[in-house]
């Protein structure tokens, strides 16, 4: 194994050897999320370097003029090697970008690695810019511009917020296990998005809905948790559902969900309220067909991947792609599944 392969394992924070379960390991010296947080913006849109990991995670369901569905991902991860400070090349802050475009038949992926301290990657608050290399997400959170590129694709997007920020869990304090592991977690799920995709198939004008997640922590998973299945669904009614189940080594899982009204009023639902069961897997054995239940809101839907092969061939591989929702509610959304490699 060369240096690079090992380095990649550190992102985010030693995932390699144990896969996503590595997120459950303890590291001393970092700050730990506390209940009843009080966020302050725009500062909290920026990086929290005293926490071990953090991400700016945007997914979008897009449509071209001909009605073809597309999915888009733009993610910037931050991972701190140590809680100490450093300047220039010596900064312990490492950055990783993942970008993808999913078409009905193809899934284009690109990954970037970089280090903080020299300007290759980072996040500034005022003006807000999150970048790695030529990839960038910038704006005032009402109006944003976003770009990313890979050897096969490139996209340039404009975003416009149509609703407020949504805080998950207990006002943004999102508990991840029965033992109390938690992260700070809020979203902007109300982005209208439009722009151009440059693909090998050609340049395509698209528009749709985007969902931006912000999350940071130092130890988000419990020791016996191996990965998660995460859903962000936007129903045709304008209502939205964020739900995830954290899978455990013993086959049980921990769930959490947020129900979001069209106005942005959010209700957090505790363990067990949200249920998701796999119906079918793809050739790789990844469940790309789910039954999702939220009895409290009469939700009983089937969630299907638009492209079964949305596998992220990044240093730490996972599945991330657009889905179509049918059943009691119809709509679209994004599905992320980790721990299947």
């Amino acid at each position: 194994m060369n240096v690079k392969a090992l380095l990649i394992c550190l992102l985010p924070s030693g995932l390699c050897a144990q896969g996503f379960a590595g997120l459950g390991t303890e590291v001393d010296g970092f700050a730990v999320p506390q209940p009843a947080p009080e966020f302050s913006f725009p500062e909290d849109h920026g990086a929290h370097e005293d926490y071990r990991i953090e991400w700016w995670y945007l997914t979008a369901n897009l449509q071209a003029a001909d009605g073809t569905d597309y999915g888009l991902q733009w993610t910037l991860f931050r991972s701190a090697l140590s809680p100490e400070d450093g300047t220039g090349w010596q900064t312990p802050q490492l950055w990783m970008g993942h970008a993808a475009v999913t078409t009905p038949t193809n899934h284009y992926v690109s990954e970037r690695l970089g280090r903080g301290g020299v300007g290759q990657a980072g996040v500034t608050v005022d003006p807000f810019v999150a970048w790695i290399d030529d990839w960038q997400l910038a704006g005032d959170w009402d109006h944003m511009a976003m770009t990313a590129s890979g050897p096969e694709f490139r996209y340039d997007m404009k975003l416009q917020a149509q609703g407020p920020l949504v805080f998950h869990g207990d006002d943004g304090y999102s508990v991840k296990s029965a033992e109390g592991q938690a992260s700070y977690y809020y979203s902007q799920p109300f982005f209208d998005i439009a722009g151009e995709l440059q693909l090998p198939e050609g340049t395509i004008a698209v528009s749709g809905q985007a969902w931006l997640d912000r999350e940071w922590s130092s130890q988000p998973l419990s020791g016996n948790q191996t990965g998660w299945d995460w859903f962000s669904l936007t129903f045709d009614s304008g209502e939205k559902l964020m739900g995830f189940r954290l899978n455990q080594t013993d086959g049980n899982y921990y769930t959490s969900a947020t129900w979001i009204t069209p106005d942005g009023d959010a209700t957090s639902l505790t363990d067990g309220a949200f249920q998701a069961e796999p119906l079918a897997t793809n050739a790789q054995g990844v469940p790309v067909h789910w039954q999702v239940l939220l009895p409290a809101y009469d939700v009983d839907v089937v969630v299907e991947a638009q492209n079964d092969n949305a596998w992220m061939t990044t240093s730490v591989p996972y599945w991330e792609g657009p889905v179509t929702v049918s059943g009691s509610h119809s709509g679209r959304g994004y599905l992320e599944m980790t721990g299947y490699d």
Partner: peptide, 20 residues
């Protein structure tokens, strides 16, 4: 990839390599 054909021998500490 391939630059610096280095084997990460036992005892190598990536964090120390990177952290100056």
């Amino acid at each position: 990839g391939g630059i610096g054909a280095i084997e990460m021998a036992d005892g190598a500490d990536v964090e120390r390599f990177l952290a100056g």
